[in-house]
Simulated scan of single mutants.
Amino acid sequence: MNDMPDLPQPPSRPTTGTEPVMRLVPQTGLSYFGRALHDITQGFHFRTLALTLAWLDIRLRYRGSVLGPFWLTGTTTIMIAAMGVLYSYLLNVDMHKYLPFLTFSVVLWSLASGVLREGCTAFTAASSLIHSARMPYTLHVIRVEMRNILVLAHNIPVVIGVFLWFHAAPQNLTTLLPACALWLVDCFFMIMLLGVLGARFRDTSPIVASLTQIFFFVTPVIWAPELMTIGQNWLLLDPFFPLIEILRAPITGDVVQVAVWPAALAWSALLAVVTFCLFARMRTRLAYWI
């Protein structure tokens, strides 16, 4: 006979048909693309949070500095003044026309190089936030894009000052708005593409940095495309040239070539399709890679 007292039993839970059940269903087929599209949609719902985080990133980057991010403005001014005098002499061009061209080109390239550089670490730099909170990955892409746009805003006064000093007036502004929209879309997909590649392959950052240096000299940034008397159409194979030209030509008053806009749209479409397919397939693995 057992003399041990009976232990109290936990109260039985009523059985209902609405109890929460965790369903782990593997993604197959088109579900990858549906979840990726849902991630992008949810990311834009958090755009205010992304802007706040981008602003805090800049505040922390220049914490303790007197001028803060305006060091970028001063550095850009000095660099453009030195390069403008030197290259206008070497290229034998009129400084009154060359310096506005150089100023806008360098400021625009600083945005492109910043997107390329920081896009490689878009997810790895936010690893602690990704592991601690369940948020869409697109939030971190928008955060990097917003941060680079805020940095670009600090260099806009340099462009305005140079254009006012040389009395250069923008022309043909009808295509400026769609060009800016295309730049925003391309920056978004470029950051997403490099973020996925950078999370999987840590060699992405030095490779992109090296390619950025090469494209800086190959792309018409410090030299005008009119200097190529033969073979200007080959410049359309450079993915940076048509995207820069559709935004630079209306500002500097140059005439946009007929094939520039189709080339820019073609490169943008290729970037968007490749990036979306890669993000849809690799999205579920990002948390493990970082």
Results as ranks from 00 to 15, higher is better:
133 A>N: 07
175 T>H: 10
152 L>W: 13
137 Y>L: 04
145 E>G: 12
157 P>F: 15
175 T>S: 14
170 P>L: 08
146 M>T: 04
175 T>I: 12
156 I>T: 13
173 L>K: 09
169 A>F: 11
182 L>C: 13
173 L>H: 05
155 N>Y: 07
131 H>R: 05
134 R>V: 13
172 N>I: 05
132 S>Q: 09
158 V>M: 09
147 R>F: 07
155 N>H: 08
156 I>W: 03
159 V>K: 09
147 R>W: 03
181 A>Q: 08
175 T>K: 12
154 H>N: 07
167 H>Q: 09
141 V>M: 05
179 A>C: 10
149 I>T: 03
175 T>Q: 15
179 A>G: 07
133 A>V: 11
132 S>P: 00
131 H>E: 00
163 F>N: 02
178 P>C: 09
155 N>R: 13
169 A>S: 12
180 C>N: 15
184 L>W: 15
185 V>E: 15
144 V>Q: 08
166 F>Q: 06
158 V>E: 04
179 A>E: 07
134 R>F: 09
177 L>T: 13
184 L>I: 12
130 I>F: 05
134 R>H: 08
145 E>W: 09
151 V>P: 00
138 T>N: 14
168 A>E: 15
172 N>E: 11
138 T>M: 12
183 W>Y: 09
154 H>L: 05
132 S>N: 06
153 A>K: 06
154 H>S: 11
138 T>F: 12
147 R>G: 14
139 L>E: 00
173 L>A: 07
170 P>F: 08
129 L>M: 12
143 R>T: 07
147 R>E: 07
151 V>S: 05
156 I>M: 09
160 I>K: 04
152 L>Q: 08
155 N>K: 10
169 A>W: 14
181 A>M: 11
